[in-house]
Amino acid sequence: MIVLTRLNDAQFAINPDLIERIHSNPDTTLVMVDGAKYIVTESLQEVIDRIAAYRAQVISMARDIPPRVPGRPLGLVPDAFPAAPEKASPSNAVPLRPRND
């Protein structure tokens, strides 16, 4: 969740994954996927920066989750610099199918 400020200086938290688009003329307006609209005091760039920081925090937190099985990663977020290249095992491979056009 990111915290934003309404025009009456009331703060509220919103799920950035539910924002469909953001308008900035003249006030910054968030349009949600369900059609709800929120006018906020933050600029368009500030809202984008908060969304990026939120997503970076989620990725960082996912990286810190201990594995359920010791020595076996969760597979959510790959390490930036893996210690050794992993071999793809055929048991984990998912076969690709052609599209039916």
Rank of each mutant, 00 (worst) to 15 (best):
L7A: 11
A56M: 07
D101F: 15
R72S: 09
E46R: 04
E42V: 03
P67H: 06
A36R: 15
L18D: 12
L96E: 14
V94L: 11
V33A: 11
Q57K: 13
I39C: 06
M32E: 00
P73M: 02
P78G: 02
A53L: 08
V58F: 03
L30D: 00
A62I: 08
K37G: 05
A88S: 14
T41C: 10
I59P: 04
N25Y: 15
L7G: 06
G71A: 04
P16Y: 02
V47A: 00
A53T: 08
D49S: 09
P78W: 00
Q57P: 05
D9Q: 12
L4D: 01
A56Q: 10
L44R: 13
I19M: 02
V47L: 00
Y54P: 01
D17L: 09
N100F: 14
I2Y: 00
A80F: 12
S91P: 03
A62H: 09
N8F: 01
L76C: 02
Y38K: 04
V58P: 03
T29L: 14
V94R: 11
I51V: 09
Y54E: 06
T29W: 07
R55I: 01
D64H: 10
V94W: 05
S91Y: 15
I59Y: 04
P95A: 06
R50G: 04
A52L: 11
D27F: 13
I22K: 01
R55Q: 09
P98D: 12
V94N: 08
R63N: 06
R6N: 09
S60A: 14
N25G: 10
A62P: 04
R50I: 07
V31H: 08
A13H: 05
M32L: 08
P16C: 00
L7N: 10
T5Q: 03
R21C: 11
R72D: 09
N8E: 05
A93K: 12
K87A: 15
R50D: 10
A56T: 09
I2E: 00
S24P: 04
A93Q: 12
N8K: 05
A36G: 10
P95S: 06
I39V: 14
D64N: 11
V31N: 05
D34L: 02
R72L: 14
V94S: 08
L44Y: 15
L7Q: 09
Q11S: 09
P85Q: 04
R6V: 04
Q57Y: 08
P26L: 06
R68M: 11
S91E: 15
L76N: 03
M32I: 03
E42R: 01
R63A: 10
N25H: 13
S24W: 15
F81E: 13
P82Y: 05
Q57R: 11
Q57F: 07
N8D: 15
D79H: 10
A52S: 13
A10I: 12
V58G: 03
L7M: 13
Y54G: 00
R50K: 15
A80H: 13
A13Y: 05
S24G: 15
A93N: 12
L7K: 08
F81L: 12
R63L: 09
P82K: 02
I39R: 08
V69K: 07
P90T: 10
I65T: 02
V69L: 08
N100S: 15
P90V: 11
I19C: 01
R50W: 06
R21M: 11
A56I: 07
